[in-house]
Design a protein around this nucleic acid. Structure first.
Lengths: 334, 334
DNA sequence: TTGAAAGCGCTAACAG
DNA sequence: CTGTTAGCGCTTTCAA
């Protein structure tokens, strides 16, 4: 006869033929219990392997070190690589990794409402998600130590990159390689907010291009949906309208890959007719032999963990900001 | 008006003009609470500085609402896609997702030692990892409901595919497309155990090929390390030694991709000189326009969750086995 | 979507 | 010394 739930004082009381009050007394060593009764109860306790549930849980929770990660649902490989970094760093520690995947900003906010209350978390890492001030305050009020990755906020620690600088480096690199006609491919998220990473990359790219004495007219900018197939289709049309040779800076590796596909479809030679420079350095970039700007995705997760843990053990209240370097990885598409 | 004891949900309920049940719901992010109600409650919570009492919670809670997933560290995209399925399915439920990534079998076993004891888990999903009988017993003894994905065990529920059938389908498909010279590329894990998925795929492939009156001599089998670059290098040599045209069945999409790269390097036309059929249908397969055998990776995770949850609510002790179908996805490489 | 009400496992006051 | 019983603060049916 097996039981599926842990024994309670009621079970102990039944086995020992006493009331639950008596069991409670021997457990808590309150008042005096007749020695014989006492030992009967203790035997029952031992034979059942009884552990007071509330204590057990309270203790478990206190002991259990848990850090939570809120991440967009793993649609894009970049999220996965960041998460992988988090998992790698946390694997070295006694902390448990709890994942909250988010599919909408409403979803995100509801997590943020409840996590500080009943999340039982020691710390929180928020990946690639933008936080409203309101929720930042909540986090702060409830003393839930938090590190942001990709979208910084002045009141919280974060690990980020300089997107504008990334655009600049792209321009410099392509220029140095001898290209003089440029284009940019970004995704539609660009349109919504001025401060989105992709807009910043475009800004940096454009500025540097004009500084170099070239130019980037609007007709050489393609804003496509975040979907590799649709992007490819639009890229085909886009490329047809362009004068070659051309050097394209794609705001993400995935878009760069769409471009490569489009180029193949049009029988363009890479990099002779069309040079493609990506951004991210996904695992996949290597498979496509894509030249790209590495933004150290895995490391961003690792560093977030390190920052979080160090603040946990040493809660000095200064917000810490870690800026990751960018690095051009030369492969075959430029 | 000051109070001397810390606020309870009753206080919150009073201030928010709702019932304690509603407060509990917003705290736990359960079921749906009308957004307006929700924010009223949250305001009350914040204004009172309410913090739920852990012990009271522990008392009232019957389930932990935590399900654990043990997975190989996300090196291969196939693990990620399985995990993605788990996350997707769990996202619909009030269960928390705890991830345990594993980098060695020792590592796995140490998790398996402690998880049933102190894991505080309602259930466990084990992805793409092989279990010793000993640990299976442990899981059973401690009544930790478990579902296995990819490596089944007779005493536990599992979701799996028929790898040998996959090999057979590969042969049939390539044969039907008119190919008559075949090769196989697998990875070195094949060597260690006879029952590994990749060996099974090879077995099924080989058998069916001879049934079809063709043959697959050992010199047309390449066993390469699980590393896309090394595989590519070896594939180049391998292809040089082969008579063309040739149809290759790669045991995984990643290896298929290595083959595509090798073919490009050798200026072979795909599929005219070399047909490549993959196995998995990773997201990436589409980007490479790879014909492949889909094994429904995401679904495997989703189904594992469904199986687990259904056993949790309805603990009928029959072990359940779910066999996923395979599906040929025709794209451009065959 | 909500509220009423019945637990959850345990402690403590009160009888006996 | 021991049992009965009323809570503790929270969760979770079940109806409405």
């Amino acid at each position: 006869m097996t039981r599926n739930s842990p024994p309670t004082i009621y079970d102990v009381a039944t086995v020992a033929h006493v009331s639950i009050a008596t069991v409670s007394r021997v457990i808590n060593n309150l008042e005096k219990v007749k020695p014989e009764t006492r030992s009967v109860v203790l035997e029952a306790i031992d034979s059942l392997g009884f552990v007071p549930k509330a204590d057990a849980r309270a203790r478990a929770i206190r002991t259990q070190r848990r850090i939570g990660v809120v991440t967009p649902f793993f649609t894009a490989p970049s999220f996965v690589q960041r998460l992988r970094g988090v998992a790698a760093a946390l694997g070295q520690t006694p902390y448990e990794l709890v994942i909250y995947t988010v599919t909408s900003s409403k979803h995100l906010n509801s997590y943020l409402d409840t996590l500080p209350l009943t999340g039982n978390l020691d710390g929180l890492i928020i990946l690639s998600l933008e936080l409203d001030d309101h929720y930042v305050e909540r986090l702060l009020d409830h003393h839930l130590e938090t590190v942001l990755v990709e979208y910084p906020h002045p009141l919280l620690s974060s690990v980020e990159i300089d997107n504008e600088e990334g655009g600049k480096q792209a321009a410099d690199y392509l220029h140095k390689r001898g290209y003089r006609r440029f284009a940019f491919v970004g995704d539609t998220s660009t349109a919504e907010y001025g401060i989105h990473p992709i807009s910043l990359r475009l800004n940096g790219f454009r500025k540097e291009i004009s500084r170099l004495g070239c130019n980037l007219p609007d007709c050489q900018i393609l804003i496509a949906p975040y979907d590799i197939n649709k992007t490819r289709e639009q890229a085909v049309e886009f490329l047809k309208s362009q004068e070659l040779p051309l050097a394209i800076f794609a705001a993400t590796d995935l878009q760069a890959i769409s471009l490569i596909q489009a180029a193949r479809q049009l029988n363009l030679r890479i990099p002779e007719d069309l040079a493609v420079l990506g951004f991210d350095d996904l695992d996949m970039a290597e498979y496509f032999n894509l030249t790209t700007i590495r933004q150290h995705l895995d490391e961003s997760g690792e560093i977030a963990v390190e920052m979080l843990l160090s603040r946990l053990t040493n809660p000095n209240r200064t917000v810490q900001i870690s800026k990751l370097p960018l690095e051009i990885i030369e492969r075959g598409t430029t």
